[in-house]
């Protein structure tokens, strides 16, 4: 029963994460701590495999393997969401860069009849 609460809370947490896209570096400490915890728990689980089953039983999961699977699914979803948000931020950066470049290298018309072109190097591009 406890596992259901944990998993549903986890799933809702990811939902919030998807919707509230904070800037890079947000929750960095939290992410690092979570990563270290996973490492430590992983080592413990390898050294004492039966411990996972005992923990699993304590929170209402049949086998330790199932618990490990649940944790894996949660970690995977988190990683997928974090990656897609990172790509989204990168896309915005690329857009800004490309726009700046386009505005910098403005190509004036070939037959020059436009009165707007200012002398400050607008026609730098070939």
């Amino acid at each position: 029963m406890i596992i259901k609460i944990l998993l549903i809370t986890g799933a809702l947490g990811f939902g919030v994460l998807v919707l509230r896209d904070r800037g890079a570096g947000h929750h960095l400490l939290l992410r690092r701590l979570a990563g270290l915890t996973v490492v430590v728990l992983g080592i413990i689980a390898v050294l004492w495999p039966l411990l996972t089953t005992r923990v699993a039983n304590a929170i209402g999961v049949g086998r330790g393997t199932d618990l490990v699977l649940y944790v894996l699914v949660m970690v995977f979803i988190y990683s997928a969401v974090a990656t897609s948000q990172r790509i989204h931020r990168l896309e915005r950066t690329v857009t800004m860069l490309v726009r700046e470049l386009a505005l910098r290298d403005t190509a004036g018309p070939v037959r020059d009849d436009s009165a707007d072109v200012r002398p400050n190097g607008e026609e730098r591009a070939s």
């Binding site: 490309v98 386009a102 190509a107 591009a125």
Partner: peptide, 15 residues
């Protein structure tokens, strides 16, 4: 577009 007489701004990649 340039030949037609327009000022052209070029995005290096499609956005």
């Amino acid at each position: 577009a340039r030949a037609a007489g327009a000022t052209v701004l070029r995005h290096a990649v499609n956005l």
